[in-house]
């Protein structure tokens, strides 16, 4: 399984939740905390992320930076 993760610019997030339905791994959820703008923001809720970039593609506020495990490290794991 390819592993990935996302970094989220929580202060730019407006909690629109469009990434939640775009994520095929169901790994995003709103927190109960609010950011300085007063919005609940998005967070990774588990470690199922594959780094597919879907969330980053649909995000209207460009909050996502996406990382994926490098091929070399996947070879090492085998």
């Amino acid at each position: 399984m390819i592993k990935g993760t996302v970094k989220i610019a929580t202060e730019l997030c407006k909690g629109c939740e469009l990434c939640i339905s775009a994520c095929p791994q169901d790994c995003l959820a709103l927190t109960n905390n609010i950011n300085l703008k007063g919005y609940k923001f998005i967070q990774l809720k588990n470690d199922a992320c594959t780094g597919c970039t879907n969330c980053a593609l649909v995000c209207p506020d460009a909050v996502f930076t996406v990382f994926r495990q490098s091929k070399s490290s996947m070879k090492k794991a085998v």
Binding site: G4, T5, T53, V66, F67, R68, Q69, S70, S72
Partner: peptide, 8 residues
């Protein structure tokens, strides 16, 4: 995770 590559 280790050895992460930036993809976006």
């Amino acid at each position: 995770l280790e050895d992460l590559e930036l993809v976006y």
